[in-house]
Simulated scan of single mutants.
Amino acid sequence: MQTKTIRRWSWVHKWTSLISMVFLLLLCITGLPLIFHHEIDHILQEEVEPANLPADTPRANLDVLVKNSMEGFPSQVVQFLIWDRHEPNVIGLSIGEKPDSDPTNNRFLRADAQTGKLLEEVKFRGTFTYIMFKLHVDLFAGLPGKLFLGFMGLLFVIAVISGIVIYGPSMRKLDFGTVRYGRSRFIRWLDLHNLLGVVTIVWALVVGGTGVINTWADLVIKIWQFGQLAEITAQYKDAPIPAQLTSINEAVKIATERLPDKTPSFVAYPGTTFSSKSHYIVFMKGNTPLTSRLVTPVLVNAADGKFSDTRELPWYVKTLLVSQPLHFGDYGGMPLKIIWAILDVLTIIVLITGIYLWFKRRRSSKVAQPAPALAPAE
């Protein structure tokens, strides 16, 4: 590769790394506990456990479960029902002031899926994992924060790619993975930086790429709402939210009958972010590690309880759904989480060594500059 080309790629690597490095360090540090967020929450928060009934115990009627759970919250409405991925005997209720209120401000309840009784209200805000999550996702700045971090993630991906390009020529006279311990500290840190950078290349591209995609989540959902969902529900666009909603239990039953090889993941009530004003949308998931992240919406008319439609989600929504758990290594249970954590720590070391090398090189260049000549005496 020509020297001029190497210099150009080195310039790209230098500046994309420098611009994004501090924020990437923040993302790696906050992302580390989020890999184990469920385990950390379980340790730090005392949760009311569901009744320990036999696995074949019939599930509670969802209408009864919702009624029991909402008795203490008369001014609130249910926006979403969520089947807990980690606790199969728990169903979550996300509740807000109005059907169309911002779900990020919702309260969250846990109910026993077998007895139908309310277990507790979960307090997320102010917890350790909530703070880490908000810093990691949007810096407590909402959509602008997400898009900004998405841009930093894009710079990170470019930095990784440019690092790959310049690694080969820069190390062509050395064996792969060489760390020259007999040389100066700067050379040792440079070799360590290069080695760990190469080791984490695939992981960095996967996590960086999925992180960028995840920052577009709000926009992706809006595109789906104004695209496919609007098309499906076009004949109901001027209809108000039904004054009396039909049975949620029957709506889930209809969805299960339509897609018998899938199970419920969550239900969006009429008027909420993921639904129309006239429908329950029951999102059904598969039963494998991958298909359990891909959902298929089933629309049930909330006024008369009749099936309306079901369609596969468009590719851009599926891409988002696959990228979200992949970003945190939440596909292969604890072994994959541990691998993700190790690679995260190695990436933190890469970032720290990169910062050190830049400061060291900058200081050396200043020292090497000749002192300015004194002005001639008059």
Rank of each mutant, 00 (worst) to 15 (best):
A268W: 02
P270W: 06
I161E: 05
F73L: 10
L245G: 07
L25M: 07
F140Y: 13
E312H: 10
N249Q: 07
G150C: 05
S276W: 02
V198C: 09
M21T: 08
L196E: 00
E71A: 15
T319R: 00
R258W: 11
D84T: 06
A302Q: 02
L149R: 00
K318V: 01
I338C: 08
V295Q: 15
I131M: 14
I232D: 11
Y130V: 06
F274A: 12
A60C: 13
T104A: 15
W340N: 10
L25P: 00
L219W: 10
K134T: 09
N89D: 15
F36E: 12
L24A: 06
E49F: 08
L81K: 08
I223V: 15
P372I: 14
V165H: 02
I35W: 02
G227D: 05
H13F: 04
P270R: 03
W9T: 11
I201N: 01
V282I: 12
S162L: 03
F151A: 15
I187L: 13
I339T: 14
M171P: 00
P54C: 10
R59G: 13
Y316T: 05
Y130S: 11
G177P: 04
L343K: 02
E231T: 13
R311I: 02
K337D: 14
L149Q: 12
L149V: 00
P314T: 08
L65S: 13
F274H: 11
L143I: 10
Y356S: 08
L81P: 00
S308W: 03
P103N: 08
G92I: 01
S247L: 05
V66L: 09
L320M: 14
T272L: 05
G271C: 11
L154T: 14
P58I: 04
V282E: 05
L374A: 11
G72T: 12
T347G: 12
W216G: 14
M70V: 04
T263M: 01
M152C: 13
R110L: 09
G197E: 07
K262W: 00
I40E: 08
H136A: 06
A375L: 14
Q235R: 13
D102A: 03
K134E: 15
S278I: 04
G142I: 12
K318P: 02
G209P: 07
E47T: 05
N214C: 12
G145E: 08
I95N: 02
G208K: 01
T200V: 12
W83T: 07
V12K: 05
A217C: 02
N301T: 08
A55W: 01
